[in-house]
Design a protein around this nucleic acid. Structure first.
Lengths: 144, 144
DNA sequence: CTCCTTGCAAACTATTTGCAATCTG
DNA sequence: CAGATTGCAAATAGTTTGCAAGGAG
């Protein structure tokens, strides 16, 4: 499948790159629709999938019913507020301290570990000061 | 809300406890329906939520579109095969080696970390020997 | 031209919910 | 009995897909 370079696809990627953070398909749709009023949600979903397959985007699932997308340029862990649902990037290098844990796990039943996922769940500074604000994006975080 | 002890609720919990592993709502439904043919999926979902609120069950989301449930008696990380979708418990104590990482993260922007989630993604021994088996439960794993 | 891509609408899947009937304490 | 819970069916929400028309290489 020879992928082509449509303005919609470019605009979808640009929107996420320009935003810098994590966006849902619907948020991307609303952003890009400003420049392409005829844009459809289906097109957004299809392009997000293509961009992920191309390696341009990374898909993120935090157990909040929606999927987030971000550009792949930086690798980091995520800090998630369980009250308002905000997602912040942890300014710490990925891996490093996890070496020992990964090493332990590597011995388990011949399983080949390719990657690990680590998130921090808690309450952000803003939600600590204004108790029970629970913004719109506040979907329940599922534990593991 | 004074929760009551119905046979359906008991049977739902028993099914998960007896199985020992991680089950989806639909899997629980099919299991329990054998003893309660009139059981409805809605009842299963409602009871799973009650049992989680009671602290009897833990909810697990691995970015695979479905939610899994397990009993709370043990805390562990999970090892997920991206080929067949199998989920195995890591026989390692939770936390321990992560102290230093958590400590680092604790200083970030006043965020109060309450818990963290760690999963290992890779290919299980079985899928390494039989390449591309991709069992039924093989939903795509989303990265973070 | 070829066939990838779009817009639109309908389809899907997992999960939730309204409601009257039915149990539990 | 009072109120929690059930079965059933319809409703949601996020995401996917079929199809004919349009656009990129």
């Amino acid at each position: 499948m020879n992928t082509r370079n449509t303005k919609q696809r470019q605009a979808i990627f640009d929107a996420i790159e320009h935003h810098g953070g994590h966006l849902t398909a619907d948020e991307v749709y609303k952003l890009v629709k400003r420049r392409f009023p005829r844009l459809s949600l289906g097109t957004v979903y299809r392009n997000l999938r293509v961009l992920v397959e191309q390696g341009s985007l990374r898909e993120l699932d935090f157990g909040m019913a929606v999927t987030y997308f971000e550009t792949v340029k930086d690798s980091h862990y995520h800090i998630i507020c369980r009250v308002c649902g905000s997602i912040t990037d942890a300014e710490m290098p990925i891996e490093r301290r996890l070496q020992s844990v990964v090493a332990q796990a590597r011995n388990l039943g011949g399983f080949r570990i390719e990657e690990h996922r680590l998130d921090f769940i808690g309450v952000c500074a803003s939600c600590q000061s204004k108790p029970k604000k629970a913004g719109r994006g506040a979907r329940p975080i599922k534990s593991r």
